[in-house]
Measured scan of single mutants.
Amino acid sequence: KAKLLVLLYAFVATDADTICIGYHANNSTDTVDTILEKNVAVTHSVNLLEDSHNGKLCKLKGIAPLQLGKCNITGWLLGNPECDSLLPARSWSYIVETPNSENGACYPGDLIDYEELREQLSSVSSLERFEIFPKESSWPNHTFNGVTVSCSHRGKSSFYRNLLWLTKKGDSYPKLTNSYVNNKGKEVLVLWGVHHPSSSDEQQSLYSNGNAYVSVASSNYNRRFTPEIAARPKVRDQHGRMNYYWTLLEPGDTIIFEATGNLIAPWYAFALSRGFESGIITSNASMHECNTKCQTPQGAINSNLPFQNIHPVTIGECPKYVRSTKLRMVTGLRNIPSIQYRGLFGAIAGFIEGGWTGMIDGWYGYHHQNEQGSGYAADQKSTQNAINGITNKVNSVIEKMNTQFTAVGKEFNNLEKRMENLNKKVDDGFLDIWTYNAELLVLLENERTLDFHDLNVKNLYEKVKSQLKNNAKEIGNGCFEFYHKCDNECMESVRNGTYDYPKYSEESKLNR
């Protein structure tokens, strides 16, 4: 008799109507990190870190770059004969040098303040090359056809396309004075040089004057150069050297050249137009028929994500570079809930034993079982409120962090190594801060989002509990077992918050 009662009780308990509160689960393989956990499985997430590029040089917003090819900045601007293909260059979106560009200054020497000139050019998007001192009329008392084997072109001695090597005419090199007034309405880049012979005999042979000088002056520039005559090792078949100089001439300003020898005179100059998204990159990537809004030396990035880990040097509207390998923000729920887990921000989770793959029309909802059958029903209101809140948060985070910009490298010469090392340390410090901030932001927001979901499920549970009161009992896994019969209409009233407690209280009292 006792065995019969136990079996009867078990049958009745199993047959009781139930309603459970749960949440969506799926077959997603997404994982995120939080402050407290690593690799948390979630139903949905968004990636904030771009880690792919196309490996190509592309047009930037429809404008092609200027590819210097086998030449570098120095060779292009001075007019190395091997860089003749660059003479027609007028406009570009950015400038590309190759790491091993070999054609710079063909006659050995240095372009002074080269690093600063590169910085200036990094904001130039177009130029006009014009004859600042016409070759045939500007130097009537001097020979202007100086050439050298060091600047050979097609097997013949030649010289820079933008400079003139002035030497004596006959047996004399009379003092020369020439000036140019900038009437271009924009900055003009003027380049010139000073020749330093290897011996007094060479000085006399070329310029006749043993104590020659070169003077260059404008409103913002004033220097006097004296040739340094000295024996030097042979470089590119030359014992002599040429140093090259430049200045930016403001609109309306005048530049005056005065010399008694050794002047490498300007022939062509450049009127410059600035462009905020221009820059110089060093890259071996090849040019393709493609378009982008962000270019790196590795390749083009076409992404609206706020961060990238491809390269710190970028041109155009680019994500911020960070050292992170993963920045994924959760938008959905835990896919593998932890039992009795309390989140960092106070939300209680884990009283549900598992997510439901059968509930596909919402994030949170119900599963019921009664004599009429069983089924899932999503709670659309709480789901939609959660979707709206999380979507707004993700968009806000992306908008705040998605300050796209150009980031170019800084140039230092060989004598500025300590400054370069200090600059690298400062840049590394800023990069570490950006990386830390980005990672911390994602970790915190992921923790908040998961706790937010847990709290929403808990609130749904409490909503049902407050309606049923003692007409049902909690069975410990997020479910309630009714003390009365609850048909589909009754189940719907529980879900929509209109459950009639008094209607079922007498039946429940008897069954309790």
Rank of each mutant, 00 (worst) to 15 (best):
A10I: 14
W267P: 00
V124T: 14
L4Q: 05
G275S: 15
R241F: 02
V214A: 09
E277W: 04
I95Q: 05
E187A: 09
D237Q: 09
G279K: 04
N183L: 13
L121A: 05
L121G: 00
C83D: 06
P233S: 12
L86D: 12
L127W: 15
V12S: 14
N178S: 15
N162K: 05
F159L: 04
I19E: 11
F276W: 10
E128V: 09
L263S: 01
K61T: 00
L87Y: 04
A231E: 08
R129G: 05
S198E: 14
P88C: 00
R154Q: 13
S199H: 10
M242P: 01
P134I: 02
D33M: 11
D84N: 04
G104W: 11
K168I: 09
L77Y: 01
C83E: 05
S273L: 09
V188P: 01
F225V: 15
H239W: 00
K3F: 12
P108D: 01
S179D: 08
L189F: 10
V12Q: 13
S205G: 13
A265L: 07
A89R: 05
I73C: 05
S101Y: 00
L78R: 11
L117R: 03
I255W: 00
I73G: 02
S137E: 13
F159V: 06
N80G: 04
G279E: 05
K186N: 15
L5N: 01
T260I: 04
N100S: 11
F133Y: 14
N80T: 11
T260Y: 06
F225W: 12
S123I: 13
V96W: 06
Y94S: 08
L57Y: 12
V190M: 07
H44P: 00
C151S: 13
Y221S: 10
G279D: 06
S101A: 13
S137L: 13
T148I: 03
T167I: 09
S137V: 10
S199D: 06
K168T: 14
S85Y: 13
C58A: 04
K38C: 09
Q203M: 09
N178T: 14
N39Q: 08
L117C: 04
S157R: 07
R154E: 13
A2P: 03
M242V: 03
W139E: 04
H153Y: 12
A41P: 15
G22C: 07
E258N: 07
L191D: 00
G261F: 00
D84V: 02
N47R: 09
A212I: 07
N27Y: 06
W192I: 00
Y207L: 02
V12W: 05
L206C: 14
I35V: 02
F225Y: 13
K234W: 01
L8W: 14
T34C: 02
V190T: 01
V181E: 07
P81Q: 02
I112N: 10
C106S: 06
T177M: 06
S52C: 00
S199L: 07
R224Y: 12
R161C: 09
I280V: 15
S200H: 15
I21C: 04
D201R: 02
